[in-house]
């Protein structure tokens, strides 16, 4: 079995977001780049499975669509335990563009399980995994919080509206994973860092693809406003505001 893990290269989640003067772009200068946290968990689970089933899982490949500045992130994934890496040399673009690039690069390659994070921590799009599945015409299962292999059967738990489901499916499949899929993200070992030096990182050319959307501009979110005081005789007001204004219930 070959596992492919899609990796998005994103700014460290503690980064303070800065913009260009015209507010049309994010200013990435000085940003520390990391593996998208959900992808990091996906990769961790893939490595755990390979360690647990060495005869079954032959290879873990990581892939990203991006410029050469994404290479350190891919090499970190190799240091964590992936066997090889692919970078589609295509920077920018929306989820459709990205998924098209990934699909182009892996079409015809024998990947049995493709893991994607449920969203990337930059554009929070929740889209690339599903799009990739459709472009490859694979099954997909979304909101996956556990993944186990039982021979050739693939057992997953997914979140559904109001609960959880355990599911059995088979390869090839795209699994879109979320919290719970692995607990502690892998930390690369010295040996891993050393062996990553000689692991293959293949750069493939981008394919012509049109994006389906584009960013028009950014705004800083509204500042936290002063505490709204609510009359203790009118708790319904609190319920109403939490529902319609704060939108947390």
């Amino acid at each position: 079995m070959n596992i492919l893990v899609c990796i998005s290269n994103v700014p460290d989640t503690t980064t303070r977001i800065k913009y260009s003067a015209d507010m049309k772009a994010v200013d990435y200068s000085g940003v520390q780049w990391i593996i998208n946290p959900w992808d990091e968990l996906a990769l961790t689970r893939a490595i755990e499975l390979k360690e647990a089933h060495p005869a079954l899982v032959q290879k873990i490949t990581v892939i990203t669509a991006g410029g050469a500045d994404a290479d350190p992130t891919l090499r970190k994934a190799l240091a964590c335990g992936a066997d090889d890496a692919i970078r589609v040399d295509a920077a920018g673009g929306d989820s459709l563009f990205t998924a098209t690039q990934l699909a182009h690069a892996v079409k015809g390659e024998p990947f049995d399980v493709i893991l994607c994070g449920i969203e990337s921590s930059d554009y929070n799009g929740s889209a690339v995994g599903g799009m990739l599945a459709e472009l490859l015409d694979y099954n997909s299962v979304s909101a996956v919080s556990s993944l186990n292999l039982d021979g050739n059967s693939i057992k997953v738990t997914r979140e559904i509206d109001g609960g959880k489901q355990s599911i059995e499916t088979s390869a090839p499949v795209v699994l879109i994973v979320q919290k719970g899929i692995a607990i502690n993200p892998r930390i690369p070992s010295m040996r891993g860092i050393m062996t990553a030096r000689t692991k293959p990182l293949k750069v493939v050319a981008a394919t012509a693809a049109a994006p389906g959307s584009k960013v028009v501009g950014y705004q800083a979110p509204p500042q936290k406003s002063a505490c709204k005081m609510i009359d203790p005789e009118n708790i319904d007001e609190l319920v109403h505001l939490l529902h319609t204004e704060a939108r947390v219930i």
């Binding site: 350190p72 970190k76 690369p188 070992s189 010295m190 860092i193």
Partner: peptide, 14 residues
């Protein structure tokens, strides 16, 4: 270097 930063990050994470 990239590796030096990777090692720093690994130690920090741990």
């Amino acid at each position: 270097s990239e590796e030096q930063l990777m090692i720093q990050q690994a130690a920090r994470d741990y």
